[in-house]
Design a protein around this nucleic acid. Structure first.
Lengths: 224, 224
DNA sequence: TCTACCACACTACCATACAAGTATGCTAGT
DNA sequence: ACTAGCATACTTGTATGGTAGTGTGGTAGA
């Protein structure tokens, strides 16, 4: 169990972060019933901050609250996943094109450093680290183009596909290709080749279209 | 004052909607200090739903809460405005291109009906109605392409530019051009001309770049 | 007159009590 | 045996009391 005192922020944030992670890690699978009281006791806080965390999770569409009935971890909604993918593609195309124009030397170095770590993780078959580095790579793109809020919004909407991704990770994922694509993207930015960069990122995000049918069959209760 | 009983939803939603509208209408100008207790008394509800509404407003970046100090209507952040514009442009380009492929007859009719009302409002110089119809027009585009969540996210991020827009409305705005552009966009969708449609929407959203310098000078306290 | 300090009023944060709606299982009546 | 209806144990929604941190103005001392 996480320790509350480790969090510099409020009790509310502590509860929110804890629950959000549990949901995203599928430790709390879609459909699970959780109650304010139960969580409050578990984390040894009062109901108020728990309730406030629930509210934020509801905003994130990670929780479904039915008044006077109960709260449930949101089922994965494939329409939601598709819309998030759509918005992310549009946003990242814009970002990478912008990156070709404005990316600084400093940010490029960060990107290359990240790439180096990706290769290392790939060679060591360290999938969890790759997962984190992948996210970080895209975040760096947003940061270097001064679009951090856009990144945040995308991330917030990406929750359902994230869980799908976690599910599919249990099966298999082509990490080789992912790293190669990242490398090609960095090259394109260096060459300031917008068309190439756009093509690459579109191809890259297409990797995120999983075999939804197979997943649905394996985890029928997790989908709406 | 709004009447609570008119709201079908919870007290929390009542408070949230009330405050949000007040903020967006600049009835509560940027920088205004508001306290939980004060609002609770004003709306004759307890502090809990007010507090929960505050939380949601903070998520929307419409409110800045400083613990143990106070809560203030968020100042307009021009970086935020630019990022929202960026994301909106990327999203709407994707949507209108998609619209050229999949827009149904039914949705086209709704769009044309809306356009008709726009012309009427324009001829009557009814700016407020035009303001509403403009939003509705873009929402219809999202609805017809089945991207309602994307629209919702864009709207949520658009709060700062919305307020800027309200400010600039007091000055002047080229409503003629706006309606003409909308009309051209409908034509492009009918002709399934993606390139034309994209060009039009980009030009259209460029209208939203106001004379920020003038606004800052007129309302210096409203900006961060 | 100026400054340091302290009391006080104010804030948001958290804990807890109560209200109101819902699901469920037992019981009484058929 | 079966069903209608009620008691009960849940749930979330709302109200309120108490806590701790922050700003401010007044006062005592130099």
């Amino acid at each position: 169990m996480l320790n509350r005192t480790k969090f510099k922020h409020s009790t509310r944030d502590f509860v929110y972060d804890t629950l959000r992670e549990s949901i995203m890690d599928l430790e709390l699978p879609p459909g699970t019933a959780i109650s304010e009281k139960e969580v409050a006791e578990e984390l040894e806080v009062s109901r108020t901050p728990v309730r406030e965390a629930f509210l934020r999770l509801t905003e994130d569409e990670l929780l479904t609250v039915l008044p006077q009935r109960g709260s449930f971890v949101a089922l994965i909604d494939l329409d939601h996943v598709e819309e998030a993918r759509f918005l992310r593609e549009q946003a990242e195309v814009g970002i990478i094109r912008l990156a070709c124009e404005v990316f600084s030397e400093k940010h490029l170095e960060q990107l290359e450093q990240n790439l180096k770590e990706q290769k290392k993780a790939r060679d060591e078959n360290d999938e969890n680290t790759l997962f984190v580095l992948d996210r970080e790579f895209h975040r760096l793109l947003a940061e270097g183009t001064d679009k951090q809020r856009v990144w945040k919004v995308i991330q917030r909407m990406d929750t359902h596909s994230m869980r799908l991704r976690k599910l599919s990770m249990a099966l298999k994922f082509n990490w080789e290709k992912l790293v190669d694509q990242h490398e090609a993207m960095v090259e394109a930015i260096k060459e300031k080749n917008q068309e190439k960069a756009e093509e690459l990122i579109r191809e890259h995000l297409a990797l995120l279209i999983y075999d939804q049918k197979a997943l649905r069959e394996n985890y029928p209760d997790y989908f709406s």
